[in-house]
Design a protein around this nucleic acid. Structure first.
Lengths: 349, 349
DNA sequence: GAGTATCGCTTAACCGGATAAGTAGCGTCA
DNA sequence: TGACGCTACTTATCCGGTTAAGCGATACTC
């Protein structure tokens, strides 16, 4: 049980004052190079690491950012998305020795309460907002609070803080055109939660694209992103009189569930039914046939989000060195790419 | 942009000193009930939330615990296990208003470094150790540091801190006996990473049980838990001359991958091959047929781990009220239960 | 009625850093 | 040679809580 080393210990060992040690450690003027070198050597030798609370109290910065996820205990694990996102965020944060505080909440009210508490406690310097809604009460709440934030998703009109987002219009068009080219004329989409911004964007993109092509039908059914609903909706779609020859899912979990239902009904994939998943995790490659999906680099996306938040906070990272006084703006990332795999093929005639 | 309220503000508003406010807010003696009530009312009205850094600095407690996960960015998302665990941990922590700091690392060295930094910075009051190995250098490291910790897994002989674990012997036996009863005589197991404690425990349990029953063969192949390896090993197993009639997987992801391979090879499940998954996430119910699996309540497990850590730290939670001076000991949880589903059936004769 | 315990509060020190302000020592220059 | 400026520190204060110690007023004891 080693004792923690404080700057006072270093000061005593070096025969200087606490102040001198602080100047030396922070690379500020006020000490000679000789003294600085000596202090740094002693600090390193003693294994000094500054007490986070003390520093935070002085400089009014928590050296941490937060992310609140609104999911139930049972459903949060199934979507690889969040862990990949967090993983990417971490990669950027670690470079600046920032910590990530994670909180899982059940309702929006709880989520807002968490933000308020984090802010009041100064527990975090900024937050990531996930699952952006079409009209999202969190946006103004956070902005009013003055808590730095980055929206993980967008674009957001008149946003009071930056958003990092992918264009969903182009991929939506890509999917439909791809299916059309394969000869599919009856296409269904199992969409995500209606209130979410990207769901709305995709809804519109599908409608617009569908209007340009001679589909017989392009239907959309909204879901809650769970495998249960994915399976249930697929079962209903495939039992209808004029069943679709292709189904597009707004996430990978539902697509896997849909594939299960297709197997259950004895349908040959892709001969009798083509399936496309949005968001390509390893899940899509576990199945047989592997799922055609829209690939995007989620860890890279998370890293980008973290970069923007860090620059908003004014912290240094490897990719964005410290005092380049450029304000953080919204960033549009590369749209998802269609990765055709075994689950899609020509429509049966 | 509201200003943060400090106890000095409350003191001024109530016409008392900072000290009195502190006593009142913390329910300590030193103020009259009248004054206490008044102070609490003012604090509530002003929306006071204590500055975490200041409190931490005073009381030498971070009011946070940490968890470091050693996975790559790409593979961490796929296993629902961690998110469910974290979700359960959070449920307990929130009750005590503790925060959870998450860090994803690549190597053991990095992980140890994270623990050292957390400890030195006083960023966390305790940590959860996941993926316990058969000889785990982290155990002594953490104990030497004097950082409170709970091992998520066990049992650990001569442990210097508590472990929360499930018995894996009984479920191992359950699986083999179940498959034996179904008439399977050639059983393969795609095990997890060899160095992990629970892998070793299961290895032995399988061997012991197999010795008691008249199996023709019970083979074990170790893997890295990824879907890729799960698929690859399954492909190899099923291509062998005397292929197994049942395969048991040490996690759900590999089982799903194995099912994919079975489909790929045109095998009828469960007629020609029975599959069992260890760790039952929603994944197991997405497939067709649904996977027979070993169910355990991971969120509840996480909650238990958090409880033990909190009592070790000496913090109050709802389930374990404050000063019941019972030392925190290892806890054995209910073993996983076999949930038979469509992926297992009688062996073909 | 003097001594003293108790209550209820204030004062002040402290946690471990950051930092503004003060100062000793030295060189420079008119 | 004394005023000035610079370097290289030290000292002291602050951040916002907690908490030991101090202290006047009241109640209690003998």
């Amino acid at each position: 049980m080693t004792r923690r080393v404080t700057i006072a210990d270093i000061a005593a060992a070096a025969g200087v004052s606490k102040g001198a040690v602080s100047y030396a450690l922070n690379g500020r003027p006020g000490v000679s190079e000789t003294t600085r070198t000596k202090i740094l050597a002693i600090a390193a030798e003693m294994g000094f690491v500054p007490n986070r609370a003390a520093r935070s109290l002085s400089v009014s910065s928590a050296q941490a950012v937060g992310i609140a996820l609104r999911r139930s205990a049972r459903t949060i694990g199934i979507e690889p998305y969040f862990m990949e996102l967090i993983s990417g965020i971490e990669a950027t944060l670690s470079a600046g020795s920032f910590g990530l505080t994670l909180q899982i909440v059940g309702t929006v009210e709880e989520e807002l309460e968490v933000y308020r508490r984090w802010w009041a406690e100064r527990r975090v310097d900024g937050v990531f907002l996930c699952d952006i809604g079409t009209s999202d009460q969190r946006l103004d709440f956070i902005a009013d609070l003055g808590l730095p934030a980055v929206a993980v998703g967008g674009p957001i009109e008149g946003a009071r803080f930056p958003a990092v987002w992918h264009d969903d219009v182009e991929p939506s068009r890509d999917i439909l055109e791809y299916l059309y080219t394969l000869g599919h004329r009856r296409v269904a989409r199992v969409a995500g939660i209606p209130g979410l911004l990207h769901t709305a964007i995709r809804d519109k993109a599908y409608d617009d694209t569908a209007a340009d092509l001679a589909f017989e039908s392009v239907t959309t059914v909204h879901s809650d992103y769970t495998g249960e609903q994915g399976a249930q909706i697929t079962r209903r779609l495939l039992s209808s009189a004029k069943r679709p020859t292709a189904i597009v899912y707004d996430n990978d979990v539902m697509a896997v569930a849909g594939l299960g239902v297709a197997h259950e009904l004895g349908l040959e994939i892709p001969e009798q039914l083509s399936l496309v998943a949005w968001d390509d995790s390893q899940l899509c490659r576990l199945t047989h046939p592997a799922l055609t999906s829209l690939t995007r680099d989620i860890p890279a996306y998370g890293a980008k989000c973290a970069e923007v938040l860090m620059s908003l906070i004014g912290a240094a990272t490897e990719t964005a060195p410290k005092s380049t006084e450029t304000r953080a703006f919204s960033v549009q990332c590369k749209p998802a790419q269609l990765s055709p795999r075994g689950s899609t093929g020509p429509a049966q005639t």
